[in-house]
């Protein structure tokens, strides 16, 4: 605990990241109850009003919807989906990567080959094609697809983490007292790979936010009227010259969240290195 504080003291940027992240989580939970507008409400008299005018903190878009309200509501979906995605892809990745690396041989070869193939399609293209095919995206389908798209990468990390532990003699010691494979993988090895796995989960969290925002931007993310930061950018891109705030503020929202998560994840990996 003491070293944690000292490390935090040395990394003011990490503190900044954690603070911003908490602000967003707070906003997602409680923000809407403080808002004077909902995300669909159209202020017909004040379309494209400047930030600060007519009680619209960050202005309104072409339909007169409050940009601030939409950003606050948008934080809910992106945080939920990103969190679930990073958890699901990590769990799936650990299961697949561990099985593959632990048994080695043919199983490993087949797994690696399949992962190679899935990884040969850029995750964004994969998610885009599948979501495009499925039609209207929901939180569920979005989570599922993004998780699948990221699973090969997490599986590789998990496999690597397992392999770095597998050579240790405590694994041999467990074998010659006839422990089950399950016990060796998940009781003996898993706790020792927790460092890289946590780093991977937090990094994946940042990647998921990026991907979800990008999918929204490409129009295959959550469907209107659900406010989605990426979608807000592309919706208003045509009026960027006259009402730049409609595009800039959602972009800044994405930027602040994603940078905060990255700073946090960077800090986590520093802590893990220090733990060693």
């Amino acid at each position: 605990m003491k070293t944690m504080f000292l490390l935090l003291k040395r990394n003011p940027l990490a503190v900044l990241g954690i603070v911003i992240l908490f602000i967003w989580i707070f906003a997602a939970f409680f923000g809407p109850s403080f808002l004077s507008y909902t995300y669909t409400e159209m202020d017909m008299d004040h379309q494209m009003s400047l930030p600060g005018e007519y009680n619209h903190l960050l202005g309104t878009d072409a339909l007169g919807r409050d940009v601030f309200a939409r950003i606050i509501y948008g934080s809910r979906s992106i945080l939920t989906v990103a969190l679930m995605t990073s958890l699901f892809s990590s769990i799936a990745g650990i299961l697949i990567g561990f099985t593959s690396g632990y048994f080695g041989g043919l199983i490993d070869m087949i797994f690696l080959r399949i992962m190679d193939i899935v990884m040969a399609i850029p995750p964004l293209v994969l998610a885009m094609v599948v979501l495009g095919i499925l039609g209207d995206s929901t939180i569920f389908s979005l989570t599922l697809i993004v998780s699948i798209a990221y699973t090969p990468a997490t599986a590789r990390v998990a496999r690597g983490a397992l392999l770095s532990c597998k050579g240790n003699e405590y694994v041999d010691a467990a074998r010659i007292r006839n422990e089950s494979h399950f016990f060796i993988m998940f009781v003996e090895i898993l706790p020792n790979t927790i460092g890289p796995v946590i780093v991977e989960i937090t990094a994946r969290f940042a990647y998921s936010i990026m991907m979800i925002a990008s999918l929204g931007f490409l129009g295959v993310g959550l469907q209107p009227p659900t406010p989605d930061w990426g979608m807000m950018v592309i919706e208003n891109k045509s009026i960027i010259k006259t009402a730049s705030w409609t595009v800039l503020y959602p972009s800044l929202a994405i930027a602040s969240l994603v940078i905060a998560v990255s700073l946090f994840s960077d800090f986590v990996s520093k802590v893990m290195i220090h733990e060693k």
Partner: peptide, 21 residues
């Protein structure tokens, strides 16, 4: 760290705002 984390369209929008608007 900051630039890597940003989706391309976000850095794009920032660039547009600065260098085109």
């Amino acid at each position: 760290l900051a630039t890597m984390a940003l989706p391309e369209f976000v850095s794009g929008i920032i660039l547009i705002t600065v260098f085109a608007i």
